[in-house]
Design a protein around this nucleic acid. Sequence first.
DNA 1: GCACATAGTGTCTAAAAGGATACCGTGAAG
DNA 2: CTTCACGGTATCCTTTTAGACACTATGTGC
Lengths: 115, 115
Amino acid sequence: MPRVLKKPSSTGCSVERALSLIDGKWKIVILYKLLRGTLRFNELRRLIPGVTQRMLTNQLRELEADGLIVRVVYAQVPPRVEYSLSARGESLEPVLLALKDWGDTNLSSIEAQAA
Amino acid sequence: MPRVLKKPSSTGCSVERALSLIDGKWKIVILYKLLRGTLRFNELRRLIPGVTQRMLTNQLRELEADGLIVRVVYAQVPPRVEYSLSARGESLEPVLLALKDWGDTNLSSIEAQAA
DNA sequence: GCACATAGTGTCTAAAAGGATACCGTGAAG
DNA sequence: CTTCACGGTATCCTTTTAGACACTATGTGC
């Protein structure tokens, strides 16, 4: 997406502002994958084909800054970093599931039409 | 958002592909406003402060191309163009409402935290 | 001594998104 | 005669996004 200026806050309706938090090519997918539980950095990378290391890092940092996910670093070698949904992230579950349901039932016909 | 190349189709999961259809700074807001019924171009413009004429036109065209909204032109002067949700657009209602609910209950605390 | 795995960071660049501004035709109103 | 409303277009320019690629540290295994 476009991307909304960081925290314009007072502008727009709640839908618009909610969007700014999950805006980014990979954020929703990341949140969706984390619905099923904690994942490590490279596990996420493997689950989301196409994402680059840099983008994954960026998106995870933004999600963390917005309080939607939790990042836990274990002081080990090799490093171990685990990502999981925060309570707030989990509260997005209805949105994520609604989106997936919609995709599952509508995408095939839409893509067929576009072809 | 970034914006996904037009119809890469076979890539990514259903969530990811569903996202590409509602990607764009204003699309979800437009769909949300149309949930309540048909609106004319300038009505939408007034309901969505901050959108420019060009962007509104672009987003409406893309939504139409993806079969989510219907555009009806009346041959009158001054012109009258009405936009409404297609059946497919209406099927997004659960997603839109889930997003709004989430925003209403979570945005204030998130924005307070960010401040 | 070499490569490997983890979880990154840095830089550079291309492409896309989106904003600003000006302009268009028509008919009715003043 | 001028202006207004409507629903756009056209052009230009800036910002944002995100992809490629190289590089890092550390400890372990071969």
